[in-house]
Design a protein around this nucleic acid. Structure first.
Length: 218
DNA sequence: AACCGCCTCAACCGCAGAAGC
DNA sequence: AGCTTCTGCGGTTGAGGCGGT
């Protein structure tokens, strides 16, 4: 096979982001290999998808997780284990990557606390048999997990094991009920027609050109 | 002010399953 | 039915930022 000439790796530039947003606007957020090729980005489809899903997707929440979100993650993780994408579907605007990162941080913190506690116990009461687990259980020591319990039922729905009742599209709709702004990208890039209808065409969440407008000020 | 260690987050990799031919 | 390609997921890594000493 002929190897792709110089596939770019590493951090994305604003220009690349802009290009990606525009082409997702044109072709939808499905055909990543195709988008990677036609956009002229020297990235592979996987990389494009990841960038879109984790950073450019409209409706993504930025910043720290709220205590409610943190609790939900912990709760769902105790149910489903490392099914990050499944857990992410229950947290509007959060990505599996974000949740995964949060969990890692949380686990590390917990392990450290346990270690400290274990040392303390050994010093204070040598009879203690505490050990340091790499995988923590959900009943975190300091405070009850359910102590405040914000109302997340609206997102959690009634389903349990069969699947989720609240799709990402529903979530985006909740987050974003802005009107569709006409394509900035259309002016900047002269490409063919959109191959297939994209969700934003139904006003379900911000279209990519809106994202471009917000992120790049165009 | 400089150094060090920790934390966060973006991005890559490998694998598995789905879809297309 | 079998092969190839694509997509999505989970695990891992590394750069940069930040706080403490």
């Amino acid at each position: 096979m002929v190897q792709e000439e110089s596939i770019r790796k590493g951090p994305w530039t604003e220009q690349e982001d802009f290009q990606l947003v525009c082409f997702v606007g044109l072709f939808g957020d499905r055909r990543w290999d195709f988008i990677a090729k036609v956009s002229g980005l020297k990235r592979n489809g996987k990389s494009c998808r990841l960038r879109w899903v984790n950073y450019l997707h409209p409706g993504l929440k930025r910043g720290k997780m709220s205590p409610q979100e943190e609790r939900l993650v912990l709760d769902l993780h105790s149910k489903w284990g490392n099914r990050w994408s499944k857990i992410a579907r229950k947290l509007p605007g959060r990505t599996d990557n974000e949740i995964k990162n949060f969990w890692r941080t949380h686990v590390r913190k917990l392990a450290q606390e346990k270690k400290k506690a274990a040392v303390h116990h050994v010093v204070v009461s040598p009879s203690s048999s505490s050990t340091v687990d790499s995988v923590p259980t959900i009943d975190i020591g300091e405070e009850s997990f359910y102590d405040t319990g914000g109302d997340w039922s609206c997102y959690m729905g009634e389903e349990d094991e069969k699947g989720y009742s609240y799709s990402m599209d529903d979530i985006w709709r909740d987050i974003d009920d802005q009107s569709v702004v006409k394509a900035v990208c259309d002016e900047k890039l002269s490409c063919g027609p959109v191959a297939s209808p994209a969700p934003w065409e139904y006003g379900e969440y911000s279209p990519p050109w809106k994202v471009a407008e917000e992120k790049f000020g165009i």
